Simulated scan of single mutants.
Amino acid sequence: MKNIEKELKEFYGDNLLGIDYPCKINDQYIFLRTFISKPDGTTIKVEILQNMKLIYDTDTINGIRLISTKDIAVFKLISASSRLAKKDIYDLNYITDNNNLIELFKDLATKQERYNSEEDKTIFDLDGKVNPIQNPHLLLDFDNPKQGKSSRPNHSNDLIETVPNSKTWITTGIEWRAKMRSLYRHLELDFPKPKGRSV
């Protein structure tokens, strides 16, 4: 991680707005957060995590290694289950328009079987197991967001700000629940009944 920090400082210089380690226990359990200022005034949040395992090969585009959409989706299944953020569900719904949710669920199960030793653990494992494989209901609880720990990656707010001609949050929620119904049928589980709201 020290090499990454050094490269960030050398490449971005004064445009790098500080470097923070919200979690720094050892080389395995470490998380770097920084902000990069662009010339147009835009600020980009960058979070770098250690020990994140992949199940698919990376793609290289213009000399930059990118993880696959399916690996991103598998990460999102875990994060959506732990921090219950609408932004994760919005991303998952977008990804599952072209990648079957049932197959991604199988990918997550494969990943957990393949990488289950102590040395495979990440900072997310420090909070105990939050597992959509054992509890898929977690992927439907996004209307009740949790306040994430400051030592873990989290969203500064849970507002969905869409660009023109993109899906609204209401449409996304409806589509996601429909995809989850298909997953529940595949898992032979009863889909949860809607919860009433007290007035």
Rank of each mutant, 00 (worst) to 15 (best):
A85V: 03
F75A: 08
F124Q: 01
R114D: 01
N98C: 04
L77A: 05
I95P: 02
F124G: 00
K45F: 03
I102F: 06
K87C: 02
N116C: 14
K121V: 04
F35V: 07
T110M: 11
T122A: 12
Q147K: 13
F35I: 05
P194C: 09
T122H: 09
V74G: 07
R152T: 05
D59R: 00
L77C: 10
L108A: 11
E103I: 13
L17S: 04
S182H: 08
T43S: 05
Q112V: 03
Q28K: 08
H186E: 14
I48W: 10
D57W: 06
Y115H: 09
D91I: 02
S198C: 07
R185M: 14
Q112N: 14
E188N: 15
T96G: 08
K87L: 06
P145T: 05
E118K: 11
S81N: 06
K129G: 02
I174W: 03
K2H: 12
V199R: 13
Y184S: 04
C23Y: 03
G18W: 02
E188C: 04
K45A: 07
K9S: 14
A178N: 14
I89H: 07
M180G: 01
Y21K: 14
F75M: 15
P39K: 12
D14M: 05
K70M: 05
F142V: 01
S79G: 03
I55Y: 04
F191I: 07
R181K: 14
L32H: 09
R83I: 00
V199A: 12
E119R: 06
K2R: 12
D59K: 01
D71R: 01
K86P: 02
E103Y: 12
P39R: 05
N98F: 13
I78S: 09
V130G: 00
E119S: 13
Y12A: 15
M1R: 07
S79T: 15
Y21I: 07
P145V: 09
I95F: 13
D107K: 03
N135W: 05
E5S: 11
K121P: 02
I95M: 11
P164V: 08
G196M: 08
N51F: 06
P153L: 10
Q28H: 04
S82N: 03
E161N: 13
Y115A: 04
F142H: 04
S117P: 01
N116D: 11
S156T: 14
M1W: 05
K111N: 07
K86H: 08
D125I: 08
G128W: 07
E188I: 10
K86Y: 03
V163C: 03
D40H: 10
N51L: 03
T110F: 12
T172Q: 11
